[in-house]
Amino acid sequence: MTNFSFSLNHHLDLPDDVFRLMRDQIYRRSGIWFNDTSKYLLQKRLSPRARELNFDSFQKYFYFLQYDPRADAEFDQIFDLVTTNETYFFREPAQLTAFIEEIVPDLMSRKSVKKVRIWSAGCSSGEEAYSIAMLLEESGWYDHAAFEIFASDINQQVLAKARKGQYRENAFRATQPPLREKYFTRETDNSWRIRDEIRNRVSFGRLNLYDESRVSLLGHLDVVFCRNVIIYFDDSSKRVVVNNFYNRLSEGGYLLLGHSESLISLSTQFKLRHLKNDMVYQK
């Protein structure tokens, strides 16, 4: 009689060489880099997908990604599965204050056409973009000018969530209750849905920051928010992404990175500006 051991571990084995090859494939297409310690993450997240496609080994899955004409579409699935999406409303408030109280006034003082174009690059499930819209509303800036907020991510699933605009408690850890009451409605399942007047101020789309030709579709922008996104790239792909931002920004436009990120050793194209509330980069 054959004996079976019943493993409760679903994951396919991911040999080191196959991990490196798949990592390189993901990197070439998106600039996202998985270091050696992330092997288990990739294994865990892609194993079910490989099985779903009837592959009984990662080696076969790798060959599919390498040679099959359907690989492009498959990589879209992979990006959805491997990108980390944790964020919340009003993250890094000092920088948001700098945006509202210093950057926007500066842009307004310079522009003869009263329209400010903002890009939330790597928006995940939309909290950052909606935060920007809420702050603009709170500060009354919408009465003075038109603001266009475009939010993008490579992950289709989080974009769907962003469009839906429905959030759980974790997303509000930095949100004052009165603000939440004002801009969200409570749903029967205890989640919170953003009100339409804010939701309609943001457009969402799927973009790979690494893909210059796609990024150029956005035209010229006045402010780029890209916070805690490029940390997932290695230096070489960071330079590509930052260069793409530079090319999209209008003269004097602003680039806002996460508080632990900087352009040192990446680019000398931007000027570092010490604002009252935070440090930002300017073209």
Binding site: F4, F6, S7, L8, H10, P48, E52
Partner: peptide
């Protein structure tokens, strides 16, 4: 959910073992 189905299969099999 397919993964949950598979987990159920494995868990029952493990219990019987």
């Amino acid at each position: 959910d397919v993964a949950s189905q598979q987990a159920a299969v494995n868990s029952i099999s493990a219990l019987v073992a």
